[in-house]
Amino acid sequence: MNEPSSAPLSEQEMIRMEKVHKWYGTFHVLKDINLTVRKGERIVVCGPSGSGKSTAIRCINRLEEFQRGRIVVDGQELSSDVKQVEQIRREVGMVFQHFNLFPHLTVLENCTLAPTWVRKLPRRQAEDIAMRYLERVKIPEQAGKYPGQLSGGQQQRVAIARSLCMNPKIMLFDEPTSALDPEMIKEVLETMVTLAEDGMTMICVTHEMGFAKTVAHRVIFMDGGEIIEENEPEEFFTHPQSDRTKLFLSQILHN
């Protein structure tokens, strides 16, 4: 993998989470999450399963509600106003563990749907943009196929292209490689690295520590709904501070 540029980050804040708490019924899933992400910053969130890392990033585009605290995305504070939430979601792309492509639409239609219906782009223009991004994820030849005809890695790359077609300012990745066979993980990670090279603001929940080392500006470790530790990747992997982080790293790196 190539080393993404490490030019100095701008000071502009893209995401600010302040004292965010969330409960599922009586279960306290997120406890006092504080996180600031600047423009162009790339963050990897890791932690054992059930630690609340997916829930945390799903709060950013309000796929999950939270009960206390505030989240500001690109200058707009998340509220329960539906129109405003839709507005924010246009600017925040998301890639899911299980791809969630629309199986009744072709790859090209998957990519043009939101640009034409949400951004109101003319069809030709939306198709041009879609083809450009399909070329970037290296599967333009699959444009006419249905998702069910593609491999898992190809589907995930289409899902990334689909998000990019909305020209988002932020990309969220929710365990994008966890449902893939090993040989397909590489092609998806490569796609994500090229995104990083272009200066996309990214938050990525993943267990791919190699990806974290080469791409992330910061690594965040969550456990039990809390942020336990956050640091630059170099420091994070060589000098983990807390015992829980050390335990987690020893488990994940020895596999």
Binding site: F96, L101, F102
Partner: peptide, 19 residues
Amino acid sequence: GQFEAAAALGLGYWKTMAL
């Protein structure tokens, strides 16, 4: 996941249902 993917793209209720 289908509802979530549609929501994440900024599609509203009626468009999600219809499309």
